[in-house]
Design a protein around this nucleic acid. Sequence first.
DNA 1: ATAGGGTTAG
Length: 746
Amino acid sequence: MASLPSAVIGNTIKLESEFKKRSTTFPSIEKRNSGYLDKDFDALSLDFKETEPSNYVTLLQKCVEKNSIKEAKMIHGQIVKSGTNDNLFVMTSLVNVYGKCGAMEEARKVFDGLAKRNVVTWTSLMSGYVQNAQPELATGVFLEMLENGAFPTNYTIGVVLNACSVLYDVKLGKEVHGYVVKYGLEDDTSVGNALCNLYSKCGNNLDSAMKVFSRIGERNVVSWTTIVSACGDNGSSADGLNLFSEMLEEGIEPNEFILTSVLSLCSTMQAIDVGLQVHSLSIKIGYEFNLAVTNSIMYLYLKNGWFSEAKKLFYGLEKVSLVTWNAMIAGHAQMMDVAENNVMQTRNGVEALDMFLRLQRSGLKPDLFTMSSVLTVCSNLVALEQGEQVHAQTIKTGFLSDVVVGTALVNMYNKCGSIKKASKAFVEMNTRTLISWTSMITAFAQHGLSQQALDLFNDMRLAGDRPNKVTFIGVLAACSHAGMVDEGLAYFEMMKNEYKINPIMDHYACMIDMFVRLGRLEEAFDFVKKMEFEPNEFIWSLLIAGCRSHGNLELGFYAAEQLLSIKPKDPEVYSMLMNMYVSAKRWKDVSRLRKAMKEENLTKLKDWSWISIKDKVYSFKPDDKSCHQCQDVHILLEDLLEKSRNLGYEWKENLEIPEDEEIEDKEPSLSRVHHSEKFAVVYGLIKIQKPAAVRVVKSTSMCRDCHSFVKFVSVATEREIMIRDNKRLHRFVNGKCSCGDFGSLL
DNA sequence: ATAGGGTTAG
């Protein structure tokens, strides 16, 4: 939880009282959005021939509010009939309105048919292309315009810069910036805002954005909104809140845009209390029923885990927008990670997909935001079939050309265990960003394809894109997976010296993992000592796993005790320790531990698995005696256990000791536990036709026993099986697992 | 005519 700057709270409260005095200055949303279009239109359409040109402009602008191409076309027809199509003012408005309604082909047709154009006409066409996700056409029109001898205004420059932002074309952006400096446009508000946006959106460079912001002569609400959002996009949400209070201190009145931006910061920071203050400020200045603000509040609630409050808002809305649906879908998708149990986790995902369906039935068209969120849901649910359907939809709608959608698709395929399709999706992308490179590098690393990960990292550097700390997690993970110690150490140094990135815990974890896999335990522990922070649970788990694999029990038990002191109430830790004592036949410790577990009521591991088949999710528990198609599942499981034993599988761990048995020095009689993934895998084998892979998600780490068993199953059934647990991805093919048989296996 | 709520990596 991020700490909240007290200055903001202070200012906000102070200013809230100030705003009370002038709360009437803001019109409420009903007045703004009331659609009188039908009446106006009917009244005017009776005598269109006598209509003044300016009336056409008014009518056209109402089409934007209604987002109605149809009505724009009708008015267009009347304009032609009445001979008003020689009026440049009206025709420019038509270009603008078609663009804003998403009808770029119409806009272009009108534009091409014009005998005369002015700079506003050109700018309108460009703006349309930017808003309709065709930024490359916008920059094309810009060049065309220069060739035609038209001189750009500050607005034109603003639009071009926004096109550069969307295109991630910092180069062209910087050229335009040079032009801006040359003509002394730097302090212009529109230009400055767009430059600020450019450096924030595609340069990931908050410092440059701040510099540009500081040079704007007269900062308006848009300027402040841009810089506040820039803080949010670049991981400085707290600074964004501070800037917001600065704006309030300067006496600039917030509008719905800055309110939603600030609320979005609060969602990111999970700063529900500041969020509620901003909410009350919004109400005081007249935005209680504003849809955009309400959407933000709803999203804030979702991110805070307040599902029922969010739903109350949702069902209370008279009218919803696409953003409302998108917020609900994204909110549910993101909360899957922090869900407390399988029911909640899968329910959030399934609910998000249901909302996606309802959105489509409502007649609204999903956009790129919808697509990326839905792909995230599919990733989290490991719902490959649905993910593929969404993929097809992104092709049809053209949204696939968007980098974020493309990246989301790469992640979806990766998380569903299909590295080939992930890589294909990546290759087909026409733009690369820091995040898309990082996604693909990480995906290769997670699948144990270290060389491909490192090659891609090289490509990224050659392309001139700057890696960040997340990229290096992928790179170092690739090295550790392949046992490339020298390379790993070199990249670690490169990160620190060449890129000035201070290592975080995850980087150390990769380095420790690297030594541990090779059995170089001393060096691993040395690295732990070198860290400037206390090792976390993940580091200890790695050390334990290493000690177990390489038979150093002394160090192993030492690490396990350390882990226990960090997470004293975690059933997973207890299970691991129990397995270690059982393997070492240390029955006294087994007895002691069992007592402790009983006292703490920690005997039950939070172990559940699920599998997505078509549009359904099926959950399984350990020793599941009432699972889906239970009889068939149990019969096949027994059969597979038998076949695996014939192939050399031995049951070694995860033995449960009968509750009433007294154990002191002797080996107790042990019963076996079937963890949940066994049932999920077997169910998948029954339900999913060959040769499709079986993909399962699991809440806790896989234990060494199940891991070994599934390897044999992949041989016995000649099937590919993927299990994603809470730590890593395991892809079993032909008796081998992509994790390299190493992970913090229970 | 310029801006916006909701999107992607560990």
